[in-house]
């Protein structure tokens, strides 16, 4: 009986601790460890359109004279609508899915725009070293007792692989997954393709290897040589987002970002751009039939409008951002009822 009493006192104290934590530290901890979820709790009341993005939304070229993000530019085209955007570098569908759960359920915006970055579906991004930090930033917003969330955060209890394990998983995928390339194309896996280019595919006039070009070509291969399928974890996340939107009855927009196809073709060849288009078509077909407004920007930005000419990113200068924002706002204006 004495022990029962002791345990009861302990549990009562735990409940009091939860209350104390909510009153004293929770808000500051949420702001510190999960700033996006903190913002989401407060902005959904005041937004008609909520835009989720990654670095493509807010990266500017040093020579830009228009310092507005894609979301801001689109909002300027639709003054009657209240826009809010949440941007976090390296985020992806898996993160957006969690953000949606952090929205105030009583005031879900009329429309949610999800940035779909094709590269985010590749093995490099899925097993990225940035993933643990992204997952860590979600713990505080989970629907559990707040004090438990804080404790689990300290214990490092969130889904993540060690760097070496992630590297191993990535390499295995590159080694073993057969790509749907043309029958006669000699490189059937990312590894084979990458090896072929890495071993002196480009040479300088003096016969030495052109390492800059080789490295960039290899990077393009690792970034875009994959074929989407229903089992890809990003596709599963997008499916979950669609399901969420159907339950909440809000308009869902998948905004497929532009990629530098011309350069990919020049550098690696048409087999790579064929795969990129295949992946775009996969998303368009899969989600258009599920009631999602899929806006395809894949080939909307000119090669010169990419800020990083020597790497694969979706960072556009003002021309690129304006082109995307314009198309996005046009589709939304056409499809959304007035606010």
């Amino acid at each position: 009986m004495r022990h029962v009493k002791t345990i009861a006192i302990f549990f009562a104290a735990l409940i009091l601790m939860e209350v104390l934590y909510r009153i004293t530290s929770f808000t500051s901890d949420l702001k510190k460890f999960s700033p996006e979820q903190y913002r989401l709790l407060h902005i959904s009341d005041s937004a008609d359109i909520l835009f989720f993005g990654e670095s493509s939304n807010t990266t500017f070229a040093p020579y830009d004279s228009i310092p507005y993000s894609i979301a801001e530019l689109a909002a300027q085209q639709m003054p009657a609508w209240r826009w809010k955007s949440i941007t976090k570098h390296a985020s992806h569908a898996g993160i957006y899915k969690q953000w949606l759960n952090a929205l105030n359920p009583k005031s879900v915006p009329a429309c949610i725009v999800i940035t779909v970055n094709l590269r985010s579906c590749n093995a490099d991004w899925r097993y990225s070293a940035l993933e643990p930090a992204l997952q860590q930033a979600l713990v505080m917003g989970k629907a559990r007792p707040r004090l438990l969330n804080r404790f689990l955060l300290a214990l490092g209890f969130y889904p993540h692989l060690s760097e070496r394990l992630a590297q191993k998983a990535k390499l295995t995928e590159w080694d073993t997954t057969c790509l749907p390339v043309s029958k006669n194309y000699p490189y059937k896996t990312v590894r084979a393709w990458d090896d072929a280019f890495a071993n002196g595919y480009y040479c300088k006039p003096d016969g030495s290897w052109d390492m800059d070009k080789i490295q960039l070509a290899c990077h393009y291969i690792k970034s875009y040589a994959f074929a989407l399928h229903a089992e890809n974890s990003r596709i599963k996340d997008l499916d979950a987002i669609v399901q969420w939107a159907q339950i909440k009855k809000c308009t869902l927009v998948f905004n497929i970002m532009a990629e530098n196809l011309n350069y990919a073709e020049t550098l690696v060849g048409p087999e790579l751009t064929r795969l990129m288009r295949f992946n775009r078509d996969f998303i368009v077909k899969r989600y258009s039939t599920k009631g999602v407004l899929v806006i395809d920007h894949l080939e909307s930005v000119k090669g010169a409008d990419y800020i990083d000419q020597n790497w694969t990113t979706e960072h556009y200068n003002q021309n690129g951002r304006i082109a995307i924002a314009k198309k996005l706002s046009q589709v939304l204006l056409k499809n959304l009822l007035n606010p």
Binding site: M17, Y21, Q136, F151, L153, A154, L155
Partner: peptide, 13 residues
């Protein structure tokens, strides 16, 4: 002690 563990643990595990 319990409150400190639950509410103030370092977050880098």
């Amino acid at each position: 002690m319990v409150y400190c563990i639950l509410a103030f643990g370092g977050t880098q595990a």
